[in-house]
Design a protein around this nucleic acid. Structure first.
Lengths: 197, 197
DNA sequence: TTAACATTTGAACGGTCGTTCTAATTTTAT
DNA sequence: ATAAAATTAGAACGACCGTTCAAATGTTAA
């Protein structure tokens, strides 16, 4: 009775893996259920056996991707001892693990009037995850006396938009080549945090 | 003979105006030629009398939008006397005149394998326009002794990505409310430019 | 074995979309 | 006025796409 009765779960996972890959490469609208079917080797009908529709499938994958990003950060965070180090570490973490193409293709879905409001809301909620992570580092820096006392919410948005903007470069450039740029952004930002005046 | 022979030009302009509006609101894929036809009041067939296809129409509009942005900047630029002032002015100019929704919906087109390579290239070339404008300000600042001598290309990319990232906020927030944020970004960036060390 | 249930397929439907084509209408030139 | 050219409309086509459905196949439990 504890034995796995079917291998339907394996099929589900395979479908999700191929779907993530396709959504990342081609975006939401340009990836058809047929594409996912062909890539995964399962019929279109089978995809609808596992997922209610294309929209729900995408939202699930986006949530899973964001959670994965956050979990990996929590795991890595312990290896840094100061908020300053964490900031540099976070920048590199974003560079290598934030799945920009997938997450930004959610805007296609969100901008479609036919998309269900719940799905749109769920996608917008995803943006909170990294912001909270940034804010936590800034708060810790202030508490530890590393950073001056400033407007945390403003800092969070400024840092978030900068890293987000830099991530767009991953579409056209090698990740490794972008490391100095991400580090330099943190260096400049730190001057504000440490009280540049 | 110099008299305007038809009013076909007026129709063309009206179509373009409605197309810009629709592409901005709904993105490239979600805006159909039928939508543009309905909004402008001209038949679908008439749209194809003026434009080769939907793709070319969009590229033309994106180029025109970017050129308009640049022209407005050149006009406004003279009102500032220092590179520092220009930097603040540029940030606000980007906030109010950079048509983020339209220009970022070009990524939908660019990520579609069926799009013609020329169109994709033309869209990528658009990104050069603001970057050159940023670079010009930084170069002037160095020449005038306002900014220290640094890596101009790196600075240009860092500034460009930051402003680009901040522009994403225009999707969800009032422009006026974002002014302090754009100014603060420039203030922080200026510490680097003026030799924070 | 057999009945119940889980899994998978593939055809089919209804809808949308970009594009083409033909014909009608309007304007220009003679 | 009339022929030629420009302009506009609207129907039609072919392709694709998300979704549904009925049937086929495989698995479990009794």
């Amino acid at each position: 009775m504890n034995k796995r009765r079917y291998d339907s779960e394996k099929a589900k996972v395979e479908i999700m893996e191929h779907a993530v890959s396709l959504f990342s490469q081609k975006g939401y609208n340009q990836t058809s259920v047929g594409d996912i079917s062909t890539a995964s080797g399962y019929s279109k009908g089978h995809i609808y056996y596992h997922f209610e529709n294309k929209e729900k499938l995408f939202v699930l994958l986006a949530q899973q991707t964001m959670q994965d990003w956050h979990n990996k950060w929590l795991y890595k965070e312990c290896t840094y001892s100061t908020a300053t180090e964490k900031l540099y570490g976070m920048a590199i973490h974003v560079l290598y693990h934030y799945q920009t193409p997938l997450l930004s293709s959610g805007q296609e879905l969100a901008s479609n009037p036919k998309s269900s409001p719940e799905s749109v809301q769920q996608l917008y909620n995803l943006a909170i995850v990294p912001m909270d992570a940034y804010r936590a580092i800034l708060q810790e820096g202030i508490d530890r006396g590393e950073f001056v006392n400033g407007n945390i919410d403003e800092w969070t948005v400024l840092l978030g938009t900068w890293l987000g903007g830099l991530c767009q470069l991953t579409n056209t450039q090698e990740l490794k080549a972008l490391e100095p740029l991400f580090n330099q952004a943190v260096t400049i930002f730190l001057r504000e945090l440490k009280g540049g005046k």
